[in-house]
Design a binder for these strands. Structure first.
Lengths: 234, 234
DNA sequence: CAGAATCCCATTCGATACTG
DNA sequence: CAGTATCGAATGGGATTCTG
């Protein structure tokens, strides 16, 4: 007596996508794909390169193994994430964005730029290294940036990235530390916010042991000057 | 025996915002604000001007009164929506975006632009008049648009808008029908997608009774030519 | 019409335990 | 380490009812 299964609202197709809104609007479809809890943050964490399950789990504090598994599966099915098995020695798997998945960055940036203007936004909460690096890509002033070409190394909480500033663009990739013209090294992300967005003096933050700048310090200052938060509203 | 209330995880504050992710990232905060089901679509429906409860409910097929009430309350608390009571005769209320709420449009556009490139996106589903007008604002080619100044009237499913094309920008507002240099009038939104993005011949769609173009038809064609969907990926 | 209140079921989530 | 399996608790959301 529970066999009608087939007589429900729609024949069969909308099993995973199109679950919620029956709407041709692209934004509605986007929210079907990435509107579940945690999905957007998983994409964010993969935006600078593939990670392993446990890396993701460590970055997304509060997510359970179950939910992470479910979200990765649904992002994979949506074509946003792929999984790649590492060669035999390391039995581990890597999750990474598809080409299209990487194209979500502008949407992520606009969401972040918008939300950061809310008076309710609390920048004192923890921040992952990837978040911080993505914030730089979001908050850079492209006009100022065009006047500066450089390779900048940033190491936060032991994760190293290199930003290659060229012609106003600034791709960021994971890297070995020590590759750049200048190196920022910080045990935690939050003090970096003070340096890059609050324009706290370098020396002060260095004196607190929250930052070490190596290499071209004049360049470091010019680099920092490229970034600014949007004004708050209201 | 249920009075501990104060001994929970955090003192008190994170009662509504900061509920899910403890994350300083702007994108994470955005998802706290608008990541609940329906929230983003409510914002979308308000993007071209305030609406009443029942208007919203009619546009968002499938939403229940309870959920709409809850979402409006939480959007109001987040500072994205305000409610305004109409003068005595009309006892009704109007929900509209705050100044900051309107600033969410670029994020909505980027999400839509991105999702529309998915092979899984189905443009055959129903589309609200607001969705359609916002899609025009998203998919316009700004360079082409700079060469055309015009006032275009679009009436879809009985809802009228006017798009004022000037200097490459195209603000859209609700209006009385018949204000423009040219008027598009369509009983349903979907055939308009074929005209604007599929470049179906005007006459064909008109012959099917799905569209009536009044006024400067040459302008109508030039106008249509400003819009194109992004390429699919994969 | 606009929305609050109640009821109740379905889903989701987190914690724990388990497996290759 | 990378998940899967299970279970109880919390949440979400639809249907209905009630009120100004």
């Amino acid at each position: 007596m529970k066999l009608q299964k087939e007589t429900e609202s729609q024949p069969d197709t909308p099993e995973k996508h199109g679950k919620w809104y029956q709407d041709a609007c692209g934004t509605a479809f986007a929210m079907e794909l990435v509107g579940e809890r945690w999905s957007m943050l998983i994409i964010r964490e993969l935006m600078l390169g593939g990670r392993r399950f446990s890396d993701l789990r460590a970055s997304l504090t509060g997510i359970s193994a179950k939910v992470l598994t479910e979200r990765l599966a649904s992002l994979e099915q949506a074509g946003i994430v792929t999984r790649r098995k590492l060669p035999p020695p390391a039995a581990s798997q890597i999750y990474e964005l598809t080409e299209w998945g990487y194209l979500a960055e502008p949407a992520i940036q606009e969401l972040g730029r918008w939300a950061a203007r809310s008076p309710g936004h609390n920048p004192q909460l923890p921040l992952t290294p990837v978040s911080f690096m993505l914030s730089l890509r979001t908050m850079i002033d492209p006009d100022k940036a065009r006047l500066l070409n450089a390779t900048v190394d940033v190491t936060v909480s032991g994760e190293s990235f290199v930003a290659e500033l060229q012609d106003g663009r600034m791709p960021v990739r994971r890297a070995e530390p020590g590759e750049g013209d200048v190196t920022f090294e910080a045990p935690r992300a939050l003090p970096l916010l003070r340096v890059f967005y609050g324009k706290y003096p370098l020396e002060e933050v260095e004196a607190q042991g929250e930052l070490k700048v190596t290499g071209d310090r004049a360049l470091a200052r010019r680099f920092i000057d490229l970034f600014a938060l949007p004004e708050k509203v209201g």
